[in-house]
């Protein structure tokens, strides 16, 4: 593999993806900020006052990390799935496919694009959260690393969705029927200690639970699960999903006849 060639190609994809996010900021940056503001108003401010303390914190403080992570997950996924499927639909994905850059470069470039958007939206939602409650970061390294690793996982998942998608409906099915339920059931709004033992065990099969809790630990210092296990699971997902993406591109699934 020609490293210089792939480095320049990678920079090109990242730059293109970044400019895409910025160019359509009304679609990419603003909606999550508005949605999260509504969550903070309704669940945090109005309902949260009646809920009281959860996990040793005000309800507003408790849900803030979960809502930030929720926006990171949905935006990293949404960015890659819409960008790569859009390129497939418009056939300009062929610009990349005919070029000598490696398939790994194509994947990494789009993943970085997803991570960048997730980081931008995450920062904006954090700013919104600070308007409603006080947040101090207990473990900065864990906070940052978990945001980055989680957005990598969901960027890769978005890439796989885009590879298989044949029409625009196909890129909304997974977010609607898989991602949203898993996120809502992943401990964003509650501690799983509130659940009966059986449902606690079922929840442990939800990977988003580990990301939300590890991120919450990074900010608040409390978690329902083991942090080392969270890192292990997220790392395994990254390796498995990246391998799957690479295998799909190498075989030309969904992009080559």
């Amino acid at each position: 593999m020609n490293l210089a060639l792939n480095w320049n190609a990678l920079k090109t994809i990242v730059r293109k993806e970044f400019l895409r996010v910025v160019r359509i900021w009304v679609q990419t940056i603003v909606p999550p900020a508005i949605m999260m503001t509504l969550y903070f108003i309704i669940f945090g401010s109005l309902i949260g006052k009646r809920i009281g303390v959860m996990g040793g914190f005000d309800y507003m403080q408790f849900i803030a990390p979960g809502l930030i992570m929720m926006s990171v997950i949905t935006n990293s996924y949404g960015n890659v799935v819409s960008s790569f499927f859009g390129a497939k639909f418009g056939r300009h994905v062929e610009e990349m496919l005919v070029s000598p850059m490696s398939n790994a470069t194509i994947i990494i470039g789009h993943v970085i694009g997803g991570v960048v958007r997730a980081a931008m939206v995450g920062a904006l939602v954090t700013a919104v959260a600070l308007a409603f409650t006080n947040l101090t970061v207990a473990h900065p390294l864990i906070t940052i690393s978990m945001v980055l690793m989680s957005s990598v996982v969901f960027s890769l998942a978005g890439f796989i969705n885009a590879v298989y998608a044949r029409k625009f409906d196909d890129i909304s099915i997974v977010p609607t029927f898989v991602l949203t339920p898993l996120t809502y059931l992943g401990g964003v709004f509650y501690s799983i200690t509130l659940l009966p033992e059986f449902w606690q065990k079922v929840s442990m099969g939800n990977p988003i639970l580990y990301m939300v809790n590890a991120f919450r630990y990074g900010i608040l210092g409390v978690s329902d699960i083991s942090i080392s296990r969270a890192y292990l699971i997220v790392s395994i997902f990254i390796v498995l999903l990246f391998s799957a993406c690479l295998g799909l591109l190498n075989r030309g699934v969904g992009i080559r006849e």
Binding site: N8, A9, T12, I13, R15, K16, L19, E95, S99, M101
Partner: peptide
Amino acid sequence: LNIVVNQAGYYGLDR
């Protein structure tokens, strides 16, 4: 301009 410059990038040319 972006279309042709990006294509150059995919082939490894510096900006």
